[in-house]
């Protein structure tokens, strides 16, 4: 059986990103170390001031949130890569070539998921050094990692869509800035219960919160003890939210990609 061209070409496009990492390691390394910096900042700098109901160990609470945040920041990288290629005309060159049309996206997907796995390894390593531990079974631990990557996969499509919509570099910068409040307005760093009522509710319903809470649950780390429906169904919602995002942004991205030719 021959491998479909979509995969062969997709792998070629993925390899292009891997070559970028080798040739220009600085941005990749900064991307990998940035979450580490955040962990150190929140763990040591603000950690003393952070109180999570029901637990004295902020690090155990913080790390799963940081894992989810690392996945969310990956979305920016996707967006920047997609919009840069579109602006430079590289996307047009691919589209004018007799290669598999889906390879551009398949390749992007491969490269970004590889990058995310690397990012997750680094931040988990950092957590282990700081004394964070997974207390659950091997299955539950792998499940948590799977849910984190599922979130990244869903955000990949958000990133591709935004990268195709947002063409100029200033707008890309603006979207990047918006990612911040969205990641902070969640249970990644603090308990939503400590926020004003309506803000807390938004934070609880943030997809990032569900993944962070599910990871805490599966790793056997302390949660923040919310008793709302969404807080009590974290694992379910950590599956549902990404699927909802994919259901929305996959067709939007495909349509947007096709609309390049309208």
């Amino acid at each position: 059986m021959t491998v479909p061209w979509a995969l062969v070409d997709g792998w070629t496009v993925t390899r292009r990103d891997l070559m970028h990492w080798l040739r220009e390691p600085a941005p990749v390394i900064i991307g990998l170390l940035f979450p580490v910096l955040m962990v150190l900042m929140f763990g040591f700098l603000f950690g003393g001031a952070m109180a999570i109901p029901g637990t004295a160990d902020y690090t155990e609470f913080l790390l799963p949130g940081m894992f989810a945040m690392t996945m969310a920041f990956g979305m920016e990288a996707t967006m920047i890569a997609v919009s840069t290629d579109a602006q430079r005309g590289v996307t047009d060159r691919f589209r004018s070539m007799p290669m598999s049309p889906s390879a551009v996206v398949v390749g992007r997907c491969g490269a970004d998921l590889l990058n995310s796995v690397a990012g997750l390894v680094v931040i988990i390593g950092c957590g282990l050094l700081m004394g964070w531990r997974a207390h659950g079974s091997v299955g539950a631990t792998l499940g948590a990692v799977g849910l984190l990557l599922l979130l990244r996969f869903a955000l990949l499509w958000v990133g591709i869509f935004l990268g195709l919509v947002v063409r100029n570099p200033e707008a890309v910068g603006a979207v990047q800035i918006l990612v911040w409040p969205v990641t902070f307005l969640s249970s990644t760093f603090v308990a939503p219960a400590t926020m004003p009522g309506w803000l807390g509710t938004i934070a609880e319903w943030n997809p990032l919160s569900s993944t962070a809470a599910a990871a805490r649950e599966l790793f056997g780390n302390p949660g923040w003890g919310g008793d709302s429906w969404i807080a009590e169904h974290a694992v379910l919602m950590a599956v549902v939210w990404p699927l909802v995002l994919v259901a929305i942004f996959f067709p939007l991205s495909v349509r947007r990609y096709q609309r390049l030719s309208r």
């Binding site: 292009r16 070559m19 220009e24 602006q87 590289v90 004018s96």
Partner: peptide
């Protein structure tokens, strides 16, 4: 059967 040289040089800058 075609080649296209677009308005911007569509090559990979990092490579």
């Amino acid at each position: 059967g075609i080649g296209l040289v677009g308005q911007n040089a569509a090559v990979d800058e990092a490579l």
